[in-house]
Nucleic acid binder design. Structure first.
Lengths: 183, 183, 183, 183
DNA sequence: AATGAATGAGGCTTCATTCAT
DNA sequence: TATGAATGAAGCCTCATTCAT
């Protein structure tokens, strides 16, 4: 899928830029400037644009990374206790969200941007598997659909992030949702 | 609190600007230009800045209005059926959110902007009353606190908005939360 | 045709910008920066963009002005001696060209840019009238068409400009063309 | 004149770059990017700059090549029919121009760039010989000087190029000029 | 008080050129 | 020598805010 392997220094820079972008957009939101990302990464502005020809591309790259990471987590959980797997994952995402900003901005925006659609669908499927398992284990009510689980997940993630919830509030809020999901 | 009473035409303009701002920011998000707000209001850009010295001020004003409106709704509901009042209100807010954009952006941002803190506290209190009533009527579990109700409310409102949920998804998502709130 | 009349200061600026643009693009070619035009006009960069939302728009405006001016000249000549009118006009344009750069760049580019097409057609028609008169006065050979007159005109104008021809060379070059046009 | 002889592969690269540059600048004008030239040549950008330390140098090299080629053509024609040689050459150049872009841009710019002056003078001399021959064969009027022939040539070449003249218009336009040159 | 033109900092992006590999 | 990544100045354009009318 990926074209020619990057030179060592190029890959190093690419990663520094991605990290910087996650940091900066996470702190300041997606309206932070590309210039600030470059500065944080310790490279010149041109270097950012060589790796990501557009600001949008940079944002997409971050989101893709996140989605891939989340999908991996879900996949791991598929072989865990079905009674708690979905809840654990849900809680994990919400916890992470509290540290990101851009990511949630974008997920919330519907992930409409080109190229994000696919990894997003993959994640969705993975979570669907978790839900099915949970329902078969009678940990989640039959009537619940994947749609609302995803909706609750993103909504709560956004809330956790933008609202600046502390650990306790996060737990209590989730508890209501988990109670609502249980049979 | 408010300085000298405005001239009739000035007040009229103020209101047209607020309405335009709600419309524009609701449609385009908070990054829409003040110029567009002015155009929609049918006034010159200078007039907007005379009434709201800063874009931030304009945004704050919208949020304040919304909070005031919501508080009024809650207060009315205080004399309604305690079993459903909280749920009705919750559902109402989420429904409105689906039509606004700016408002939720801002609420989500923590309502940090100067001057919004107070009306937000007022709204919070009003909702608190609703919650107490509901618990006394045994419609909501005892352990639930106002904190998480507020958290769920804003999170869901945001989700409804940014996620572009349709009516059905909105209902199903709320149903999970309501189930989680019930005893 | 023109929308609301500009405020006095706005019109003044608009004209200063146009003049500056003609000067700058005339000296440096169309690749000169809008920033330099602004500086030359003594206004801020934003002012240039308020009057001409795009660099293209600014360039088009200059060309339109020129075409309008030329058309006026041609129209005047229509009531002059048909034996010399066309030649006089031709010579006049070529002489002016030696002082412009942008204009010729653009005319040469085919005047394709939106909005220039119409005044260009008008000019063409006016020159067509001159040609017909000249042919009726037996000053130009019958077989000659407007197409090649226009072609020779722009080509020579370009040459005069870019080639940096002096007055003598300009005259001698034209004389060849004029001899070619005569019966 | 030229320093140390290039290694075989280096010379090969130099030629591929020149060819690519002619193609690219001919198609896109002199504002095309050096990067695109490199890509077309199938070499890395650094290689282009090793051979031509400056974009200007690359452009000059192309022009020199063209001038040399044209001079060769003229020299050949010196032993052809003096009645038609000059006209044939003139027509040939104009025809080529319609396919190039950069070249004419540069010739038009006065060939000011360092190093082009000399081959340009050579070409001029060669054409001068053609003119003399034509005048001796009574195919061109006595009074005509080389200056205006060169001027007409470049002007028409530019016109043919930028104006996008079709074959017919090109022929008709030249015919006027040729008629003007004849006794 | 309203108007709308002017300001100018700041954002995104391109590209000639340099330099480490 | 070739490669191609990095640099950073410079260009175009937007928009919050100020100020003359």
């Amino acid at each position: 899928m990926s074209s020619k392997p990057l030179r060592a220094d190029a890959r190093r820079n690419r990663e520094r830029i991605l990290a910087a972008a996650e940091e900066v957009f996470g702190r300041r939101g997606t309206s932070a400037s590309t210039e600030e990302v470059a500065a944080t990464a310790g490279v010149a502005i041109g270097t950012v644009f060589r790796h990501f020809p557009t600001k949008q591309d940079l944002l997409s790259a971050i989101v893709k990374e996140l989605l891939t990471r989340l999908t991996a987590e879900v996949t791991e959980l598929t072989s865990a206790d079905p009674t708690t797997a979905l809840f654990d994952f849900f809680a994990g995402v919400v916890e992470q969200a509290a540290a990101k900003k851009s990511v949630v901005d974008l997920l919330a925006a519907g992930g409409i941007e080109v190229g994000v659609a696919e990894p997003l669908a993959t994640l969705r499927d993975a979570i669907g598997a978790l839900l099915t398992q949970a329902q078969q284990a009678n940990a989640v009510r039959e009537g619940v659909r994947l749609d609302e689980v995803m909706a609750l997940l993103t909504a709560t993630a956004q809330g956790a992030l933008h609202g600046g919830w502390d650990d306790d509030l996060r737990r209590r809020t989730q508890e209501v949702i988990f109670a609502g999901l249980r049979p």
